[in-house]
């Protein structure tokens, strides 16, 4: 090494270190800002569920209280709205997942006339604006002369959930080795046993994911529900109605509760998958 090369080398090292410092810290700051942006609204919802508001609005911090949680159904109508939302979400997600799984199986497994068309049709509800979906369902129900309420909401929710279920389950089936089912049949399992012993267990994670996804989409749907609910009120409709005349902190309580449940389900899923991988 010559004597001139040494300072140069050092200079370059300093530059590289500076660059590394900036790169490292800019990334950190950027990430922190990003998460703040993402999480701040949720944090505010949670914090204000413990607020003790004066008057109708829950916008300024007045003092800490457990009352909102203790009297979570202290506003007329909120209890019925929550129950209706849970019922709809539960039934809709189960039916949509069952139907969606069947459709996904048919689409991946069997060549039939119109398979390509079906594949495209499945994506339509995913790409159609919800407002259009809601309005056209309204027109349909009006033409059929049905009574608006529980059933119209349920039918609407099943309809837009199916597509999500199909897409979720299909993704899993596409990567599924068809020879596994042939191997089962080769070893003496008929179609039904093959489905029970091989297809279903291997698709179960995707079916569970579809179920959770449908539940989550259904329970917070506003637009489509608004068009087709008649006089029934789901939780999102209730919140919207309440927000016009005030903002009761109980809304924050329910919002926080849903968030916690969703977070728990997600973490449980991650842990479960990890354990499966470790064990397998």
């Amino acid at each position: 090494m010559s004597s001139i090369a040494v300072p140069r080398q050092r200079e370059r090292n300093v530059l590289a270190a500076a660059f590394g410092f900036v790169r490292y810290h800019v990334l950190t700051v950027y990430s922190l800002l990003f998460f703040a942006y993402l999480l701040l609204p949720i944090a505010i919802v949670v914090v204000f569920s413990f607020n003790h508001p004066v008057g109708k609005f829950n916008f300024t911090w007045q003092g800490f209280t457990w009352d909102n949680w203790r009297y979570w159904d202290g506003i007329p109508g909120i209890r019925g709205a929550i129950i209706l939302s849970l019922e709809i979400a539960l039934i809709a997600s189960v039916i949509a997942t069952a139907l969606g799984t069947a459709i996904a199986l048919a689409l991946v497994r069997y060549g039939f006339r119109g398979r390509a068309t079906t594949n495209i049709l499945i994506f339509l509800p995913l790409s159609t604006p919800e407002i259009v979906l809601g309005a056209s369902l309204l027109t349909l129900f009006l033409n059929l002369n049905v009574v608006f309420g529980f059933w119209t909401i349920l039918i609407a929710h099943i309809m837009f959930c199916i597509s999500f279920a199909v897409v979720t389950v299909k993704a899993r089936l596409v990567g599924f080795d068809r020879h596994l089912e042939e191997a089962a049949m080769d070893l003496g399992a008929n179609e039904w046993t093959t489905f029970r012993k091989v297809t279903l267990p291997l698709t179960a994670p995707a079916i569970l994911a579809a179920l959770l996804l449908c539940f989550a989409i259904s329970i917070d749907d506003f637009v489509v529900t608004y068009f087709n609910s008649g006089s029934s009120v789901t939780f999102p409709l209730f919140v919207w109605g309440a927000a016009r005349i005030g903002a009761p902190p109980q809304v924050n309580v329910i919002g926080t509760a849903i968030f916690v449940v969703a977070l728990t389900a997600m973490l449980a899923n991650v842990v479960f998958q990890r354990r499966r991988e470790v064990r397998a």
Partner: peptide, 12 residues
């Protein structure tokens, strides 16, 4: 009975 090229062992 068949031995498949991919073995097709049941992963679960």
């Amino acid at each position: 009975n068949t031995v498949f090229q991919s073995y097709a062992l049941f992963p679960h």
